[in-house]
């Protein structure tokens, strides 16, 4: 059932009502697209405003009423951000943390998912129940003990300190188990009869088959880490360990708000996520269902 491509995504599913005359059908279509365009407009307008603000000069920021488009677009805010703040350092920190969490989680969760989906062993049901229950534990509630544990390990203001707590989340185990369970067992059984060890089956049979699932979990994890704010805020107190979210926030002091600068930071920090999403969105949509829906 794991289909990589969903051609149906672009196809009309129930045929539009055919009531004799063509105009009813096209009117219906028109209504559909008007709704979609309005919704897209609402989703996009704030972004457009931010991009536009990031290109405004400090002077034109205070124009009232504000202009929708900058009179003379300038890259000053971007230059300012990169010259005066360790922006690249923040970007690198975010990339290191989000990338490491994603890679480690993909390996670790797919292994656990394989065990839960295809192996039989005593204690499987209670352990999986534990995973399910722990889905309900809010990270925020564990902030204090996690902080103390990380501090006791001497990992505050280190990459490991930022990475490790992100690895605990059980949602990946759950998603991987759902994916792997939907695979037919014939292939792995054939491999087993050929004398493959469980690890070889995992490595050579299961992993290639669940590529879409891995992409979904990967994007999901990366996104969560890239946008994470609360944990880096408390675990990285030194400016050079700040991630993008914390760094971008530090641009705003209590007294001043440089809108242009903030907007430039916002645009730059979103670009990587948008690129990742555009490249992988097909998998992501196909996969969010498989992971989520089957109980």
């Amino acid at each position: 059932m794991v289909e990589t491509h969903f051609p149906e995504l672009d196809a009309t599913v129930p045929p539009p009502p055919r009531r004799g005359i063509l105009s009813t059908a096209s009117l219906y279509k028109l209504a559909i697209y008007i709704i979609l365009i309005v919704a897209a407009f609402i989703a996009m307008v704030p972004f457009g405003y931010v991009v536009s603000t990031s290109l405004k000069s400090t002077m034109s920021l205070f124009a009232y009423p504000p202009d929708w488009l900058p009179d003379e677009p300038t890259l000053d805010n971007y230059r300012n951000l990169i010259d005066r703040y360790p922006f690249w350092r923040w970007l690198m920190n975010s990339a290191i943390v989000a990338g490491s969490v994603t890679l480690i989680k993909l390996v670790v969760d797919s292994m656990a998912g394989y065990a839960f989906a295809k192996m039989r062993f005593p204690g499987k049901e209670p352990l999986f129940l534990l995973v399910l229950i722990s889905l309900m534990v809010p990270f925020a509630a564990l902030l204090i003990p996690t902080f103390i544990i990380v501090r006791e390990l001497g990992l505050l203001n280190t990459y490991w300190g930022l990475i490790l707590p992100g690895l605990a989340s059980p949602i990946g185990i759950f998603m991987m188990r759902q994916f792997i369970e939907s695979l037919p067992s014939d292939l792995e059984n054939a491999a087993r009869l050929d004398g493959c060890s469980e690890f070889q089956i995992y490595r050579r049979v299961i992993l290639p088959l669940i590529k879409p699932g891995l992409v979904v979990l990967g994007v999901f994890t990366f996104m969560t880490q890239w946008t994470s704010y609360l944990w880096p805020l408390v675990a990285a107190t030194k400016p050079q360990m700040a991630t993008l979210t914390v760094g971008a926030r530090s641009l705003t002091s209590d007294f001043t708000q440089d809108w242009g600068l903030n907007s430039a930071a916002a645009v730059l920090s979103m670009l990587p996520m948008i690129l990742v999403f555009i490249f992988l969105q097909r998998y992501f949509i196909a996969g969010s269902i498989a992971g989520a829906l089957k109980e």
């Binding site: 995504l9 697209y33 897209a40 979210t245 979103m270 948008i274 999403f277 969105q281 097909r282």
Partner: peptide, 22 residues
């Protein structure tokens, strides 16, 4: 119901979700 442009709209709708809270 959208026969054309579905994937464009999907990406656009998803954009706010990709934004960090900050």
């Amino acid at each position: 119901q959208a026969t054309r442009g579905g994937s464009v709209f999907r990406s656009v709708f998803y954009l706010p979700t990709l934004t960090p809270y900050v």
